[in-house]
Amino acid sequence: MSVSVITMMQEDRNRAERKLQTAARIAGRHLPLFLPPVLYLTDPARTPDPVVTASHLSSCHGLIYRHYGQPKHDIVAASLAEVCRKRHVAFLIANDPELAMKTGADGVHWPFAERARAKRWRRRFALMTSSAHTPDQLRLLQNAGVDAALLSTAFPSASPSARRPLGPLRFRNLARASSMPVYALGGLNADTAGQVAPVAGIAAIEGIEAVLGPESQA
């Protein structure tokens, strides 16, 4: 790969990072102070080295570690907890409150189906979030004892679990009508984040990996 091509690629990443930073600032203006404007979600297949990415996050980020029972997830969780503490990044572990307690995580991210279980842990953590995949699920979370909902799928996404996208207009309407803070998840990147930032937080996997992940640091 030629030097000029590498330079152009880095310039594209820099532009994308600036766009995400702008969207984060906009989201931060309306979210409660204890909620980070941007949430980075890990995935065993799509985030090969989340610890490296975490080392480039800032205090405007939160990190949700989704280990899905992968081998050595407790070791990875401990490493992520240490990095997040040093960088003042909110650290949540998905659907594993015991591991969250063990590592001193700030909180837990719950699947929608576990919302009743989440209530039993409400007083144990500073921050809890939950997923919502439909408008009805978002409505049912309003009194579930969580601090924010991650509503998907906001934009077209390559995720194998992605549903039909809500689209920016419908998503914004749902977020405005919600009595609790909402994060947009699904297809969030530098080009789409600004479309929802005025009414919601930003939650992403590849959209953050693209500008802060291992490849972008090479």
Score class of each variant (00 low, 15 high):
S4R: 15
S4E: 15
M8S: 14
M9Y: 09
D12F: 09
R13T: 14
R13L: 14
R13D: 08
R15D: 06
A16R: 13
A16T: 06
R18C: 12
R18W: 10
T22W: 07
A23S: 13
R25N: 10
R25C: 10
R25W: 08
R29H: 12
R29E: 15
H30W: 10
L31N: 00
P32M: 09
P32C: 07
P36T: 09
L41A: 01
L41G: 03
T42C: 01
P44Q: 08
A45F: 06
R46S: 03
T47I: 11
T47H: 03
T47Y: 07
T53K: 01
T53W: 03
T53G: 00
S55T: 11
S55Y: 04
S58N: 10
S59W: 05
I64F: 02
Y65M: 12
Y65V: 08
H67L: 08
H67Q: 03
Y68Q: 10
G69S: 07
G69W: 02
Q70C: 08
K72S: 13
K72N: 12
I75C: 02
V76N: 06
A78C: 06
A78E: 15
L80Y: 04
L80Q: 02
A81G: 11
E82Y: 06
E82C: 07
V83P: 00
C84K: 04
R85P: 00
K86R: 14
V89T: 10
F91L: 04
L92Q: 04
D96E: 09
P97L: 04
M101H: 12
G104E: 11
G107H: 05
G107E: 05
G107C: 04
V108W: 02
H109M: 03
F112P: 00
A113G: 04
E114C: 11
R117A: 13
K119A: 15
R120N: 13
S131T: 13
A132H: 02
H133G: 10
T134R: 03
P135V: 07
P135L: 02
L138K: 06
Q142M: 12
G145P: 01
A149S: 13
L151C: 02
S152G: 09
S152H: 02
T153E: 05
T153V: 08
A154W: 00
F155V: 04
S157P: 08
S157K: 04
S159E: 06
R163I: 08
L166R: 01
R170H: 11
R172W: 08
N173S: 14
N173L: 13
N173P: 00
L174E: 03
S179F: 09
S179G: 15
M180W: 03
Y183V: 01
G186L: 02
L188C: 12
L188R: 00
N189T: 06
N189P: 00
D191S: 10
A193L: 12
Q195L: 12
A197E: 02
A200V: 08
A203Y: 01
A203N: 09
A203C: 14
A204H: 08
A204G: 05
A204W: 05
I205P: 07
I208K: 01
E209S: 03
G213L: 02
P214K: 07
Q217H: 14
